[in-house]
Design a protein around this nucleic acid. Sequence first.
RNA 1: GCCGCCGUAGCUCAGCCCGGUAGAGCGCCGGCCUUGUAAGCCGGUGGUCGCGGGUUCAAAUCCCGCCGGCGGCUCCA
Length: 572
Amino acid sequence: MIILDTALLARAGLLLQYCVSKLFRDLEPAGCSVDDRGFHCDFIPRSPNAWLSEKEARRIEELVLSEEQRGVSIDPVGTRSGNEVLELLERTAVYRVGDALAYLEPGVKPSERRVGAIKILNISAHNPEPGVRLLRLIGVAFESGEDLERYMEWLRRAAERDHRVIGQRLDLFSFHEEVGPGLVIYHPKGQVVREELIRLVREVNERLGYKEVYTPHVYRSLLWKISGHYYLYRDKMVLARVEGEEYGIKPMNCPGHILIYRSRPRSYRDLPIKFSEFGTVYRWEKRGELYGLLRVRGFTQDDGHAFLREDQVKDEIKAILREVVNVLSIFGFRGEDVKIYLSTRPEKYIGTKEMWEKATKALEDALKELGVPYEVREGEGAFYGPKIDVHFRDSLGRWWQCSTIQVDFALPERFSLEYIDRDGSRKRPVMIHRAILGSIERFMAIILENFAGRLPTWLSPIQVRVIPTGAEAREYAAKVAGMFRAAGIRVDVDAGEESVAKRIKRAYDEAVPYIVIVGKREAEKNTITVRGRGNVQARDVDPSRFIELLKDEIRRRSLRQEALERLVKGCA
RNA sequence: GCCGCCGUAGCUCAGCCCGGUAGAGCGCCGGCCUUGUAAGCCGGUGGUCGCGGGUUCAAAUCCCGCCGGCGGCUCCA
């Protein structure tokens, strides 16, 4: 990741405001903010048609550089406000640039060094509050053109990590116009990754005592009216009228699980009752919000619902949270890379304030007893209850939310859920909604980008590729492949006509973690040559020994190529 | 949904600004090579230029609408 010079960005932002106001009288500077990723400058359109095109952006860039060369003056005027928009955006530091005024967020000193290169990367609308529409320019600035070129190269390299690019290159999944936006089709290799993620969560569910269930995708609208989704979530639901009756495709799995709970009387002794489901839900997100696998309309949640007595809530939350932290660490997300948030009652909600307070306290107590650091986010809860969200940072420095634990006093009320308590009285259970990975789609996208497609062995669709060096080694290659297959390892053979070099390159391109090369030499001695990532190789390896090591690496879900590391160490 | 950009061969992209009916690399197919460590050589195949309409003698190229994708805004797993 390239960290930018905020002082230089601030200077560029001031020059940018000056140049835009010089070239376009109907765009009024509304200040600039900077961070280590770039600047964003906003402008108030003075007329309805005041806007910029890409071509005009290029003109502005040129003018910034020539004004900078000419040595236009930049002087601080102090702090001032009075302008509504500037105050809203908190850009109260005023500067005089040439004969015009420009604004910055306070606390950033523009650099004394001159801007030698500037690039406007994006022209978009910014709506800081309803009714206010600003023109926003996002971009970067450097001292030299070479620095800019280096940055653009970095951007290109980052794009190669894009999960959409990797997904296509590795033949994992695709999107199709005929299917519709935000709907994924998984190919065989993508399905393997999905299944491995699901298998991991199944083990967690086993430990936590969640029983897996299966529920339909479509329900009468009646159900969604009872659950409240029909009123609070309707704009994201797919509704269909069939034979004079309305049905809705599920945007959440909870109502189905609630019906299982309600299918028979429950005793206090039965609680907690926990259901899990890899439930595929559909949420009709707005077009502009869709983004590869990270934001789709149909996705599978590793969902789970626990029905509990109030005295059981805290322990359940603690147990789930421990598992979440553990699961994230399997992917290498740990320590500083993981953050926990407690989100409280939003504006639109169901249930009573008392319920919300109780639920929020249960979450808070669990966090405190676990002694984990967390932050409170007011008003960010789901409409049916407060929640704990776990965010983590990937290798590109971005934060993601996947895991979530939500306490819910509202749905049990709406569905009149009950259990018979020790004294024979009817009591209302509490529900916990939880997801470990969140959505399989999103999680898969994140790990694809995090590992740049080079997934750890346990997640790799093909774990071992056998390459015979020539025709005479094909039979032996098939035999070796058979040994791997018998050990439950995903293996294939590339016995093509191409050169060994080419087939090795292809295996690397396809991110296959282990390449096994066999030729006459290996066939005679009953050995294999093992090649791993990063040009690491071991010769004269006993296939059975490698298979044992590999099984261990996979079983442990190692992030490293432990099997090969152990072979190499063993040789040395 | 709003603003901007983009859509050309299976993939990555050039051509579009300055209209004259399409080009490269990879892939794929065929042949040669008989393969030992990150692209062997030669040849061939491949496109209603996202869809629809308009302007024009002529549209991949200019204009309008729609669909899809991306970068932002808002929202979210």
